[in-house]
């Protein structure tokens, strides 16, 4: 009686192990509200970070306007929008910060809080979080 259950589990696992397909379309960009929506979302995100005592100290000397511009460009590009990121690469930017996984998680929570405020659908939230989670090793413990 368990054979069908186990087989469907195996199938499910198999299908999940396959790499998430690259965003060849711009549906995530649309779901985030295009250029304008992303810019507004990044503003809320930065406000959340500014309020987050777990990580705000990293941003003490940061040019916030540039950070906002760079994040907006980057998310626009990664979500399939018509932008190209002009900032420094992730490893260069975050080297020397010694960001921990707990701090990375704090930033993820701030982004989730921002996305909730902008009423972004759970499906679009998950797509964006998966893209950012893949950059974990380019940010943490450098």
């Amino acid at each position: 009686m368990f054979r069908p259950v186990i087989m469907s589990l195996a199938l499910l696992l198999g299908s999940m192990v396959m790499p998430a397909q690259a965003a060849s379309d711009d549906s995530l960009y649309q779901a985030l509200g295009q250029q304008q929506g992303i810019s507004a979302l990044m503003e809320t995100f930065i406000l959340e970070i500014a309020d987050d005592e777990r990580i705000v100290h990293h941003f003490e000397k940061t040019d916030i306007e540039r950070l906002h511009r760079m994040l907006t460009e980057q998310i626009c590009e990664l979500s399939g929008g018509p932008c190209s990121y002009s900032g420094d690469d992730m490893v260069t930017v975050h080297t020397g910060m010694n960001v921990t996984t707990a701090e990375f998680n704090a930033l993820v929570e701030d982004l989730i809080a921002a996305m909730e405020q902008h009423e972004i659908a759970v499906s679009a939230q998950n797509r964006l979080l998966a893209i950012l989670a893949a950059m974990h090793k380019e940010v943490v413990n450098l």
């Binding site: 589990l9 499910l12 696992l13 299908s15 999940m16 998430a20 759970v122 499906s123 679009a124 998950n126 797509r127 979080l129 998966a130 989670a133």
Partner: peptide, 13 residues
């Protein structure tokens, strides 16, 4: 865990 698994839901196995 897959943050963006089937149906764009987070899955755990």
């Amino acid at each position: 865990a897959w943050l963006d698994g089937p149906f764009h839901r987070t899955w755990l196995a």
